[in-house]
Simulated assay, not measured.
Amino acid sequence: MFTGLVQALGQVRALGSDRLRVSCNDDNASLILTDLALGDSVAVDGICLTVMEVLPQGFIAAVSPETLGRTTLAQSQRSDRFVNLEPSLRVGSKLGGHFVMGHIDGIGYVDAIEQTSTSWEISFTTTSAIARYIVPKGSIAVNGISLTIADYNHERYWFKVAVIPLTYSETNLSYLQLGDAVNLEADILGKYMEKLIPNSRHENDLTPAFLAENGYL
């Protein structure tokens, strides 16, 4: 489990079809590498990966074909791409973002980037599978970064986030360009609510008969 607060930037290189080398050489590398051990979890652009080997300036992680196919990880192996890194949450640590599981729900695409006087406003388009969990002022993880929904359009599967300068400069959001793909993970609370509330997946099932049966009329 993670919090969506990125600690450092790294770069990814493929080592065969099932392993990746993640290098971490920036000023914050110690926040990732200190106490890193075999079997630990690290969020790489929001993807929970397991450490198979610890290196002096990074680590080697296992990766499955499904993960490569469902996320931007394969694209991140380009030499000019940076990935966000976050170690797993420890018991007793501060929770500054929101609960991020490291299980990517799908891909989004950069629709617009605008600098304002106080922040950067970045818009994304996604799919209906993710859009149904998006709510005003709710949380979403973009490339592993915990962000708050500033605006959204459910019919267009579109949403906007406002990014403070510190987050923008210390993560790979500052490298995004129009059309770039990003990893998205919806808030886990919405998924549990959907599972627990009957008929939440089927809006057309909300009929007068259903309401009467359940004591609403």
Rank of each mutant, 00 (worst) to 15 (best):
L211R: 14
W120Q: 14
S174D: 13
L196W: 15
L178V: 08
F99V: 09
M193A: 14
I134A: 05
S117D: 15
N25Q: 15
A141P: 02
G108H: 06
G138I: 08
G58W: 05
D205S: 14
G10Y: 04
V142H: 01
Y216N: 03
I164T: 07
A209L: 12
V22Q: 07
H103T: 04
T116F: 12
T127C: 06
W158L: 06
L33G: 08
R90A: 13
L147D: 03
T126R: 07
Y152N: 08
K137M: 11
I130M: 15
N84H: 01
S30A: 13
T67Y: 05
S123G: 11
G102V: 04
T116H: 13
P56T: 03
Y152I: 03
G69C: 03
L178A: 10
Y168K: 02
T207A: 07
D111I: 01
T3H: 03
K195H: 13
G92P: 12
D151Q: 14
P56V: 02
F99R: 07
V54Q: 05
A29L: 10
E53T: 11
A37L: 13
S93M: 13
R201G: 14
L73Y: 03
G4K: 00
S41C: 09
H98R: 09
R13I: 02
D111P: 00
L31S: 12
F82I: 01
H103P: 00
R13N: 10
L217F: 08
T67D: 05
G92C: 13
S123Q: 06
V163Y: 00
P87S: 04
L95Y: 11
L55C: 10
E185L: 02
P87D: 03
S23A: 12
V182K: 06
I60K: 11
D111V: 02
L184F: 10
N28S: 08
A186G: 12
G102Q: 08
L49V: 02
A62G: 15
S64C: 08
T50C: 09
G39T: 12
D187E: 04
R13P: 01
S200C: 10
T50E: 12
T3Q: 05
S17W: 12
N214Y: 13
I47P: 00
A186V: 08
E53R: 14
R78Q: 14
D105V: 05
F82P: 01
A43S: 11
K137D: 09
P65L: 07
D40H: 13
A186N: 07
N199Q: 15
V44E: 05
M193L: 15
M193T: 10
R132V: 09
L33E: 13
G106F: 04
P198R: 09
N143S: 05
E170I: 14
A14H: 11
E170H: 13
G46V: 01
P65C: 06
L147H: 04
T116M: 11
T207D: 07
L20P: 07
P136W: 13
E121G: 07
K137W: 08
G39F: 13
D187K: 02
A74S: 15
Y109W: 15
A62Q: 15
E155M: 08
A162P: 01
C24Q: 05
S79D: 15
Q115D: 09
R156C: 04
E86R: 01
S23C: 08
A141I: 02
V42P: 05
I107Y: 10
E86I: 00
V135S: 07
N172F: 01
C24H: 05
P165R: 04
L55A: 06
G96D: 11
